[in-house]
Amino acid sequence: MKTIKNTLILAMLILMTTAFSTRTENGYKIGDTIEDFSLKNIDDKMVSLADYKKAKGFIIIFTCNMCPYSVANEDRINALDAKYKSKGFPVIAINPNDPKASKGDGFEDMKVRAKEKGFTFPYLFDEGQKVYPKFGASKTPHVFIVSKKSMKVEYIGAIDNSSKNPDAVTEKYVENAVDALLAGKKIEKTETKAIGCTIKVL
């Protein structure tokens, strides 16, 4: 009996450690090279970064349907894509939530939301939640700017300095970072933070 109990406790401990190890600590850091992925877009086609032959880099944004901070940033994400896709830095949005843990974040819901908001960028579904842990994304929205050719992480963080209220923005972190990359300059702020919703897992 005692051994069974001990085994159970041990099993629980192992489960707990593995549960925590998928958290942010192991994700990409500034300067790391990212692995490409292949995820399903809302048009049912698979998307990989390698598909973008002409891109100079990517604005990868983990976002979702249900988080109010994501919703508050949808127009700004559209604006980023409008401004930078033609310059070689398209937005790639990825929904990292498990729809079983976050009602309203299912693949069909993503199609609806993208249509409502007129998303001009791919909105990918992280099926099986395999991609976001590699990045170390911890919340939505969470931005990673990557530059080619070495697929290097250049920036991690927030879109700007006022996630709740677009009218109060005084510093546009992502724009500043991409502008610096385009100009061949050093990015001033490579890591910023903002409030967001935890990524939903079962």
Binding site: N161, S162, K164, K189, K193, I195
Partner: peptide, 10 residues
């Protein structure tokens, strides 16, 4: 209720 989250979160 404050903007500049980057500063106060850190």
């Amino acid at each position: 209720d404050d903007f500049n989250e980057d500063i106060w979160i850190k």
